[in-house]
Simulated scan of single mutants.
Amino acid sequence: MRILMAGASGFLGTRLADLLTADGHEVTRLVRRPPRTVDERQWNPSAAQLDPAVMAAADVVVNLAGAGVGDRRWNDEYKRVIRSSRVDTTTTLAITIAGLPAADRPQVLVNSSAVGWYGDTGDRTVEEDAPAGDGFLADVCRVWEAATRPAEDAGVRVVRLRTGLPLHRAGGMLKPQLLPFRLGIAGRLGSGRQWLPWISMEDWLNAAAYTIARADLAGPVNAVGAAPVTNAEFTRELARQLHRPAIIPIPALALKVALGGFAHEALTSARVLPGVLTKAGFTYRHPDLRSALHAALVE
């Protein structure tokens, strides 16, 4: 298949593009700078600019674009960047798809979203039919997902991939924790009772590819592992695998000083289950946290 990808240079996009290419697909990367290779095409989502001919050449569109939520301390300006980097890209892709003749439209748009949709669920488990929660990330996810509507209204299959916390030593939520854990100066965040919707990197990649291949899957899909754990459980297992103690809890107040507005999200409990993937028969390579962390740290 011919796959057009936005966000192909990011933490997840780089690995997904490599997987899809290895599987024999032709991946074209959307970039904001002038193209440097034959597999790149330029666009400007901030100005809603994308050549329709580029879209018409694709069978599949994958959108993983968006500024990292944990890359910087949150302030009002960076919160605007988080929102616009997701909504502008999605809107540009969806409107361009809808503007094509029906015969030229791609078959599917797999658009990134996040488990932030659900807000703080406490100890309550949620699947894809749960409504949006409260908070900044929930609001971002609401408008982010709504931006796919023009493509859906045009009859294109749209998958809204609500990603949890992919585990890999090179990025995501795991990378910044490794040094303090190895130095023995880490511990649970706040109370440690908040639930973490983790997923191994291999399983996330396979789940994304699965939604491309399965023509019967549409709408929200939770890309999370089948067994969420609390932050305290995650902390204990990570410390065990690194052979280090993890006895220094990080108080909520310290997180707020260090992270600004992101501290609230870091302490949010999201007990999210992969309802759609489970019902569809998706098989996890790493069904438990122990094997997922081992893969993230060693493989």
Rank of each mutant, 00 (worst) to 15 (best):
R160W: 00
L165Y: 07
A114N: 06
L189I: 11
V140D: 03
E127N: 15
T163E: 01
Q107I: 11
A146E: 14
V140E: 02
G99F: 11
L189Q: 05
T121C: 09
L167T: 03
A103Y: 04
V158Q: 10
D120T: 09
G122Q: 08
M173Q: 13
P106N: 09
Y118G: 03
A146H: 12
A138D: 04
R142M: 07
A98C: 12
A186L: 04
V115D: 00
R169S: 14
G184F: 13
P101M: 11
P180T: 12
S113Q: 00
A114F: 06
P131R: 08
P176H: 05
L109P: 03
D120H: 14
W117Q: 05
T125D: 12
D120S: 07
A170Q: 14
G172E: 00
S113H: 02
R149D: 13
L109G: 05
A151P: 04
Q107S: 14
G164W: 10
A102T: 15
A102H: 14
A132C: 15
V115F: 05
L165Q: 05
D134A: 15
V140S: 01
A138L: 06
D129I: 10
P166R: 09
G119F: 03
V156L: 14
A154Y: 13
E152M: 10
M173R: 01
A138V: 02
D153H: 11
W117M: 08
M173P: 15
D104G: 03
S112L: 15
R105E: 04
A130L: 05
V108P: 01
E127C: 15
R169I: 08
G155N: 08
I185R: 12
R157P: 04
D134R: 14
D120V: 07
R142W: 09
G155R: 09
V158M: 07
G99P: 00
G135R: 06
Q177C: 12
G116N: 09
L189G: 06
L189T: 03
P180M: 11
A138C: 05
L178N: 08
G164D: 11
G116R: 10
T125P: 08
W144R: 07
G155Y: 12
A130G: 11
V159M: 08
R169M: 09
T148L: 04
L167E: 02
G155H: 09
A147E: 02
T148E: 03
G187R: 11
V159N: 06
E128V: 05
L100C: 08
V158Y: 08
A151G: 03
G133C: 03
V140G: 05
D120F: 11
G171Q: 02
Q107P: 00
C141T: 13
G116K: 12
A102P: 01
L109N: 06
D139V: 00
F181N: 06
D129P: 00
W144H: 04
M173K: 01
E128D: 03
R149Q: 14
R182Y: 07
